[in-house]
Structure formats: C-alpha cells, structure tokens
Computed example of a mutant assay.
Amino acid sequence: MKPVDEYFINQKEPYQSILLYVRSIIINTLPEVEEKYSYKIPFYNIDKKPMVYLNILKGKDYVDVAFVQGVLLENDFPILRNDNNRKQVRSIQLKTIEDLDYQNFIELLKKATHLLGKSNKAWFL
C-alpha cells in the first residue's frame, strides 16, 4: 500500500470521509494531477509543482484544503482563508462534507491549475 493511501486509511471520522471526498473531486476534475506524499501529507501537483495539499492541523477540528498559490486566488474565491498568517497559502476549512461547495471548488481547482501553469515555480514568496 502506498504511503498516501495509508494516510487516508489512518484518519478518524469525520476527517477520513472529508479527505476522501476532496481527493476524489481533485482526481476526477484534474486527470493530469499527480498525487504525492510529502511532509507526511497528500500533495496534488501539476507539472511537478505543488498546487494543493490536504492536512489536519493539530488542535483544529477541520480538514485544511490548502492552495499553494492561494494568495492569488482569494479575491475570486472568498471561501479561501488565511489561516495561521501564512504568506502565500490560503485554504478552505471543512468540518463536514456539506461545507464544500462542489461547483465552486471545481472552478477553484481549474483556476489554480491555470495560474500554476503560468508560473515558473509554485512557491514565490
């Protein structure tokens, strides 16, 4: 079994269901995405550049769906939050599956892919 699969299997509910749901949307929306296991969490890369990662932050009660270039997306997608005062990353915090607006998330994924494709590197700050 791959480490990324073990990550999902080892999560407690409701986090496991939320993570698997978000994972399926990412993979089904972006067939070119590469799922990697880095820094002990799942990353989703486009052209070898990290675009989004999934995490459960210690002491928090939600799944953090974090966009590496989120600072460039937050004006168009107000659901993105600057949690923990991060310079570049913005994220969606999900306590339940119902917290995710499916259509808006797909638009966000496509826009993030487009932006990342125009960038030389994912981390710019």
Rank of each mutant, 00 (worst) to 15 (best):
K2E: 15
K2S: 15
D5G: 03
Y7T: 03
F8R: 00
F8Y: 11
I9G: 01
Q11M: 09
K12C: 02
P14Q: 04
P14T: 03
Y15K: 08
Q16E: 09
S17W: 05
S17R: 11
S24V: 00
I25S: 11
N28Q: 15
L30N: 08
P31M: 06
E32L: 07
Y37S: 08
Y37L: 05
F43G: 02
F43H: 09
K48C: 08
K48H: 12
K48N: 13
K49M: 11
P50Q: 05
V52M: 05
V52P: 01
Y53E: 05
N55S: 13
N55H: 08
I56K: 09
G59P: 03
G59V: 11
K60H: 06
K60Q: 12
D61Y: 03
D64C: 13
A66H: 01
V68F: 02
V68P: 00
V71Q: 07
L72F: 14
L80Y: 00
R81Y: 09
R81Q: 15
N82M: 10
D83M: 14
N85V: 10
K87F: 12
K87M: 14
R90C: 06
L94F: 06
L94T: 02
D99M: 11
D99A: 07
D101T: 05
D101F: 09
D101G: 05
N104M: 12
F105A: 09
I106V: 15
E107M: 08
A112W: 01
A112D: 02
T113Q: 15
L115F: 15
L115G: 03
K118V: 06
K118G: 04
K121N: 10
K121C: 06
F124H: 13
L125E: 13
L125M: 10
